[in-house]
């Protein structure tokens, strides 16, 4: 019993020690913009390692028991004794506390990343998104509009203000690790941070009918200058 307790405490200490690496995100340079996608990759990796360790330990114990306690003779019966009250409480409370500690640790990490996700930095470039069956309309400040092609300048946080004119859609930028539903009658928003020019996929992730899977497009990240020229041209037209 004592051994188990020690092991659990050690596991827990290790766990909290690893917490620092994730919270390090908080200590970034003042004024610098935190990229949610980077935060996502870091936290996801962290959780993946965490989960794998837990899974491997659990599976290893199970396999060990499975092999060790094979029935050897037809009359053999199990030898598990009823637990004493102290053991019973121990096996209830210690795992419960370990799981809860892990939960709160994960929740705290999620919370700090969530705040980054949900607070567009000041000075974000805001684009209006209007979803309809089955296309994406992007409307830029100044009136320029594009369909299914979201052109954005590199190196600038982009905020999207989204609504839908018919059913529920969801704009998913898989490379920027973010999505949110677009609904009629409500306005939703999120932001992302394209840093280098390039092309990325955007898709619809809320079932919206026959052409749900055809409702995809491109995020085209352009150098600022190129973007300005494009916008000027589009706005005039």
């Amino acid at each position: 019993m004592k051994k188990i307790f020690m092991a659990l405490t050690a596991a827990f200490m290790l766990h909290t020690a690893s917490a620092k690496s994730v919270f390090a995100n908080e200590g970034r340079k003042a004024g610098a913009i935190a990229d949610p996608a980077e935060g996502w990759s870091r936290l996801f990796h962290e959780v993946l390692v965490d989960v794998t360790i837990m899974g491997v330990i659990f599976a290893a114990i199970t396999i060990y028991y499975m092999l060790k306690y094979k029935r050897k003779s037809p009359d053999q019966v199990g030898s598990c004794k009823k637990l004493s009250a102290a053991q019973m409480w121990g096996w209830a409370l210690i795992p419960a506390f370990v799981f809860m500690a892990d939960d709160f640790f994960l929740a705290a990490n999620t919370w700090s990343l969530w705040n980054i996700y949900r607070k567009p930095p000041a000075g974000s470039y805001e684009i209006e998104v209007r979803a309809e069956m089955w296309s994406w309309n992007f409307i830029y400040p100044g009136g320029a509009a594009a369909v299914n092609e979201l052109r954005v300048p590199a190196g600038k946080p982009i905020a999207l203000r989204m609504t839908s004119s018919d059913v529920v859609h969801s704009l998913y930028l898989s490379d920027f690790k973010v999505k949110e539903d677009c609904m009629p009658g409500r306005v939703t928003y999120y932001w992302f941070y394209p840093k280098v020019p390039g092309e990325h996929v955007l898709t619809c992730t809320e079932y919206c009918g026959a052409m749900h899977s055809g409702m995809y497009g491109k995020v085209i990240v352009m150098p600022q200058e190129e973007f300005d020229n494009w916008l000027k041209k589009e706005t005039k037209a």
């Binding site: 936290l43 959780v47 999620t110 969530w114 898989s174 949110e180 992730t205």
Partner: peptide, 15 residues
């Protein structure tokens, strides 16, 4: 577990 974490779910939800 990652799905339960709201900010990780933002990327993998409905995939």
């Amino acid at each position: 577990i990652p799905l339960a974490m709201a900010s990780l779910d933002l990327a993998v939800h409905d995939t």
